[in-house]
Simulated assay, not measured.
Amino acid sequence: MDKKTLITQTAIRLFAEKGYAFTTVDEIAKACGMTKPSLYKYFPGKEDLLLEAMAMLSEELEGRVHQLYRKAGLSKSDRIIELIVIFLEYIFNHRTYMVLFIEPLMPIYENEDIQNAFMVIERKLFMWFQDSIIDLCGEEVEGYATDLTFVASSVLLDYIRVVGPHLSHEHCYRLATYVEHLIGVLVEGWKIRKPEMPLLFETPSWVMNCRSEEMTPVLRSRQLQKSFRNMELIVKDHESLKEEEKEDYLEAIGKLRTELNDSLTESVVFKALLIYLEQLEDLREECAKLRAFLFEPDGQPLSF
């Protein structure tokens, strides 16, 4: 592990244990086995260290969400519950982040770079949550999905403010299940009173402006599942294939799903399965889509 990573990980641990405000640069340097001047060679100040910690934890969060949306066996309800649990445990496990979520008026929030870094994380969470709600409830809710997301997020944050920062995994799961049910109740209510129900957010600029060119994990998951379904339909409806050949191709598609769930890298098994499927000309376009959804031209996994 290089020194910069060691310092960042040590700072993350101390921030979580003591809080950002009560952690000194001296303590971080001592825990890393170095002097304060040596630490300043890597980070000019504590705020710079916080920014690096936020970037590292943001990457960790994206990785967890990425893995979640590759679990093909999860129901849409279970997936949104798992997403909420990831969100809750993320802010509970890292005390600094909980302070940023719950008490955004703290002095460091006046730092524009820290404010922007935090807003990027908050917007990503909002986007993932909103996409998951649309995935759960169907495209008919798209017109008021932002309102649904705002209400559900507000319930989560207000509950945290009331109950406090120490929730067990079981408690987080129970809260997530409650919010998933609440979303269903809200959707049914909107369907009944939709003509007279005003919208809070028709085009919320702070959400719309944060959308990156890359797909979110939810959208990418939808595209992957659609591609798999198309491949299965192509095989099942193929007139020139014998039944045993269809079974072989369908088995290969199933194994490809499993391989993608198990690994982020373009493994030997993944390559072999694609080569096998590409023998059927009608599947080549979908195989090309899979590569485009998952990998850069040099074979490296795409980040979410």
Rank of each mutant, 00 (worst) to 15 (best):
L256K: 05
D237C: 08
P217G: 08
D262H: 06
I234W: 07
L57P: 04
N230F: 09
D113E: 07
R257Q: 06
T146H: 12
F129E: 06
F228Y: 14
K289Q: 13
S212D: 05
R220I: 12
D282E: 15
L199G: 00
I275S: 09
N93G: 13
E52Q: 11
T24E: 02
W206G: 02
E251H: 10
E180L: 07
A21Q: 10
A292M: 15
M127L: 09
W206T: 06
M215Y: 07
S168C: 04
Y109H: 02
T146Y: 11
Y90S: 00
V25K: 01
F201D: 00
V155Y: 01
F22W: 12
Y90I: 01
D48R: 13
N209P: 04
A252N: 03
M34P: 02
L224H: 12
L68T: 13
C172Y: 00
H94Y: 15
K18W: 05
R220D: 10
I133D: 02
M106L: 07
K124M: 12
L50Y: 14
S153I: 08
L290P: 08
D147Q: 08
Y249D: 01
R174Q: 12
T24G: 05
R161M: 05
V218L: 15
L157T: 10
K242S: 15
C137T: 14
L51K: 06
E170F: 09
F293L: 14
L219S: 05
H166K: 12
G45L: 09
T23Q: 03
A72F: 01
T5I: 14
R70W: 06
Q279K: 14
I102A: 00
I84C: 07
R257I: 05
S303T: 09
V99Q: 11
H94N: 10
L264F: 12
S75M: 09
A252C: 06
V25W: 05
F126M: 14
P195F: 10
L68P: 08
F201M: 04
M54T: 11
D131S: 10
V187K: 04
D147N: 12
Q225F: 13
L167M: 04
L156R: 02
E52I: 07
P297R: 14
P104Q: 08
M215L: 15
Q300K: 14
L250S: 01
L167R: 01
P104C: 08
Q225Y: 13
L233N: 13
Q115R: 09
E103M: 09
N261V: 04
S267E: 00
G19W: 13
K255E: 08
M231L: 15
K236Y: 12
L175R: 01
V99M: 11
V99D: 09
E196K: 03
A55S: 09
E296P: 05
L6V: 14
H169R: 12
E62A: 11
M106Y: 02
D147S: 09
F150H: 00
Y249M: 06
R79D: 01
Y159D: 03
A55N: 08
A55T: 11
M98G: 02
A53M: 10
L224G: 11
S75C: 09
P165A: 04
A31G: 10
F15Y: 07
S132Y: 02
E281R: 08
I133Q: 03
Y144M: 15
L61K: 07
T258L: 05
E122F: 03
